[in-house]
Amino acid sequence: MDSVIEALPKFWDGFTTTLFLAVVSGVLSLVFGTILATFRVSPLKSLRIVGATLVEIGRNTPLTLVFIFFVFILPSMGYILPLGRVPAIIALTVYTSAFVCEAVRSGINSVNVGQAEAARAIGLGSNQTLSLVVLPQALRTVVPPLINVLIALTKNTSVAAGFAVVELTATGRGLARDYPPDVIWMLLGVAFFYLVITIPSGTLAGYIERKVVFSR
């Protein structure tokens, strides 16, 4: 138990790295996922095909393979990235964007067509229809699943442990090596720090979800 206290600074380093990965790739995934979603609802068929292809590949490929692609395969194609956080953020972003895209798209689709028709009937232009009627409704349905996507992303940052990033899980594994008798405590410490992020986020998602259901 004492060794856990002794190792607290290391836990903290791992925790901040995990948080950094989660926040940066979270923001980037929201941006790219939304762009991808506009591809999927675009009037241009070729963009829709590209969007659908990327999303399907993203959702059916294990994250580990996405990591291998950006850490090892891309350099062998001549695109060399620095090791560590950069390819990890790219891999997490590419993977998570597919899920963000699906959440946003189902949000847009959940808005009844009648809503847009009604908006036009009372004389709103297409920009006004989108910003005043469609988006506010879509956003409400999109937020809870998006938070779930971001929670999953936080947990997925652990995969970076296998690819040259010392985040929480890698820290735990290193500590398990340095203090063999305290393996269980070290891993429980790691679990605790993940829960510090995921449980409050989950509670928030649940809260928003309930509000949305009632306001319908």
Partner: peptide, 19 residues
């Protein structure tokens, strides 16, 4: 359920393996 949902799969595997 909340605990299991909040911890990465990889960590659970490490638990099984090491602990």
């Amino acid at each position: 359920i909340e605990l299991l949902r909040g911890v990465p799969v990889l960590l659970m595997m490490l638990f099984g393996l090491l602990a």
